Deep mutational scan, measured.
Amino acid sequence: VSVELPAPSSWKKLFYPNKVGSVKKTEVVFVAPTGEEISNRKQLEQYLKSHPGNPAIAEFDWTTSG
């Protein structure tokens, strides 16, 4: 189950709350306009370098507050 949070234009930000008793931590995933899922800052940096014209990296908020 995921919750969609505010994201930069043409992107989606999905929040996957951890299940009770789960060892997996809460996860935030950005979905690029191409449909590619980005789950960490390093991936995001690589994606933005190879896909010019996207929002600046500073516009991506990895917190769950939206």
Rank of each mutant, 00 (worst) to 15 (best):
K24M: 14
P6R: 07
P17L: 13
S9V: 12
W11P: 04
E37I: 15
K42H: 13
S10K: 15
F60R: 01
D61T: 07
K25M: 13
L14Y: 14
A58M: 09
K24W: 11
L14M: 09
E45M: 10
K19S: 13
V29M: 08
D61N: 07
N54L: 03
G53R: 05
E36T: 04
V31P: 01
A32F: 02
E27M: 14
E4G: 08
L48W: 01
E36F: 04
F60S: 01
F15H: 07
S65Y: 10
S10Y: 13
A32M: 01
D61S: 07
K25V: 11
P55D: 02
G35N: 03
E4S: 11
L5R: 05
T26G: 15
A32L: 01
G35Y: 02
A56M: 08
N18H: 12
S10Q: 15
L14K: 07
L48D: 00
K25I: 10
K19I: 12
S65I: 10
S22E: 11
F15E: 08
K49E: 12
P17E: 11
G53I: 04
S10L: 13
K49I: 12
K49T: 11
G35K: 03
S9K: 15
S22A: 11
Q46D: 14
W62Q: 01
A32N: 01
G53D: 08
G35H: 03
E36A: 05
V29L: 07
E36Q: 07
E37C: 14
G35V: 00
K25A: 13
V23S: 15
K42P: 09
G21M: 06
W11R: 04
S22V: 11
N18F: 11
A58K: 10
T34F: 02
G53E: 07
E59D: 10
T34N: 06
F60Y: 03
F30D: 00
Y16S: 05
P55E: 03
G35A: 02
T63P: 03
A7W: 05
L48A: 00
V23E: 15
G35F: 02
T26F: 14
E45I: 10
T64R: 08
V28I: 13
P8M: 05
T26S: 14
G21V: 07
N54C: 05
V1I: 13
V23T: 14
H51R: 03
Q43C: 06
H51A: 03
T63E: 09
F60I: 02
K49M: 12
F60C: 02
Q43K: 06
V29I: 13
P55H: 06
L5G: 07
N40D: 12
W62Y: 03
V3F: 11
W11I: 05
Q46T: 10
Y47G: 00
S2N: 08
P6F: 07
S9W: 08
S50H: 10
S2M: 12
F15S: 06
E37P: 08
P17N: 08
S39I: 13
P8Q: 04
N18C: 14
P33W: 01
T63I: 05
F30K: 00
P8I: 04
W11Q: 04
E27P: 11
Q43R: 07
S10M: 14
K25W: 13
S50Y: 08
E4Y: 07
S10H: 14
N40I: 03
V23Y: 09
E4I: 09
K13I: 05
F30C: 01
V1Q: 11
F30N: 00
T34I: 00
L5A: 06
S10R: 15
S50K: 11
S22N: 13
V1P: 13
